[in-house]
């Protein structure tokens, strides 16, 4: 076991982990931050997507010890300070961007990663950026619409499904 520490959603945390402890296991099992999901465990589905040092990664395919000292952001830190949904989360609700909700934490984190670097993406850029996030319910259209709306763009021409 080794002791690691990092800053998660602005708060310093530490814990003892094995070499093989995945970052998502540290988040969910040790810190009880269960908003980050494990879907496939093979780095394909993106339900475990979080930000490490400001960029999106799949937390099922990174060791916790490799994030020692890092700045980590998860879905639990996305809401506004008063607890209300942030712009992206609210857009997912407004545009029915989720059904079962399992993929949603990863989708929101992927959307936040995109909009940080590309504040007004095209629909094609949104779809390209979600390459690593799989949803089995929605058929993606309303997720795309929600992200376009969160970027402040007019989505009235994007068909609802």
């Amino acid at each position: 076991m080794q002791n690691i520490s990092m800053t998660i959603n602005g708060k310093p945390v530490s814990g003892d982990v094995e070499g093989r402890t995945l970052l998502v296991e540290f988040l969910r099992n040790d810190l009880h931050l269960t908003g980050t999901h494990v879907g496939c465990d093979t780095s394909q589905c993106g339900a475990c997507a979080i930000h490490v040092n400001g960029i999106i990664v799949k937390s099922c395919t990174m060791f916790a010890a490799d994030a020692d000292g890092a700045l980590v952001d998860t879905i639990e830190g996305q809401a506004n300070a008063d607890g209300s949904l942030n712009k992206i989360q609210q857009a997912f609700q407004d545009h029915h961007g989720l059904q079962c909700g399992f993929c949603t934490p990863g989708m929101v984190m992927a959307a936040a990663d995109l909009l940080k670097n590309n504040p007004t993406p095209t629909e094609a850029e949104v779809r390209h950026h979600l390459d690593g996030n799989i949803c089995r319910c929605t058929g993606y259209h309303n997720i795309i619409k929600a992200i376009m709306a969160a970027s402040g763009q007019d989505v009235s021409a994007i068909a609802a499904e």
Binding site: V57, K58, A110, D131, G132
Partner: peptide, 9 residues
């Protein structure tokens, strides 16, 4: 290569 999260690692 892969997807954005994979390319970041």
């Amino acid at each position: 290569i892969g997807d954005p999260a994979v390319r970041n690692r």
